[in-house]
């Protein structure tokens, strides 16, 4: 039964992703991207990654996409005026994407099974595998340095956004839009 559910979800995700690509109007493609994110969150739950699924929805779909929509509306884009100028670019891009897709798919299908010592599909997982406690324990022990690094990264992002978005001279009220986000 759940395999059917999986295929249904996979189909919806792919459709949403296609929506992101094909829609000329950026607002539509942004909304499709939000849809894709939600679908991915459901996948994460199937994969026992509950914390990440919650994070995905709150942080990613919630904050990042809102920022996107905000900036799109701020710039009130009409959408791509016309199709990308030369169809040749589209064909080349399509070919590149298709070949890469085939390559990656073949490789993954062929060797995926060979994930060394992989837990079988039915393996019983540690209780609370994807839960917050399990993740928190690892995050703050083994990956403490990496965690601090991401905070430095976000600090740089905030500073950068403020520097770039602020008007000159500083006296004038800076743009109200959220140059910087969470």
């Amino acid at each position: 039964m759940s395999e059917l559910v999986f295929y249904l979800l996979a189909a919806i995700t792919v459709l949403c992703a296609l929506g992101v690509i094909t829609r000329p109007n950026p607002v539509h493609s942004a909304l499709f991207l939000v849809m894709t994110l939600f679908m991915l969150a459901v996948f994460y739950i199937i994969l026992e990654a509950h914390l990440v699924a919650a994070l995905q929805i709150i942080v990613y779909a919630g904050a990042v996409m809102v920022l996107f929509l905000f900036v799109i509306t701020l710039l009130n884009l009409k959408g791509d005026p016309d199709e990308p100028a030369h169809p040749l670019l589209r064909i080349v891009a399509y070919a590149v994407a298709a070949t890469l897709a085939a390559g990656v798919a073949i490789v993954l299908m062929g060797d995926a099974g060979v994930v060394p010592g992989g837990a079988g599909a039915g393996a019983v997982l540690a209780e609370g595998f994807g839960g917050t406690r399990a993740l928190a324990r690892i995050l703050f022990t083994d990956y403490l340095v990496a965690f601090e690094l991401t905070s430095v990264l976000l600090l740089v992002a905030v500073v950068g956004a403020v520097v770039l978005a602020q008007r000159e001279p500083v006296a004038e009220a800076p743009l109200t839009e959220t140059g910087e986000d969470a």
Partner: peptide, 13 residues
Amino acid sequence: FLGLETMSMAVYV
């Protein structure tokens, strides 16, 4: 990778 991103972010700005 995180070090690379920190550096790149700063240099983009």
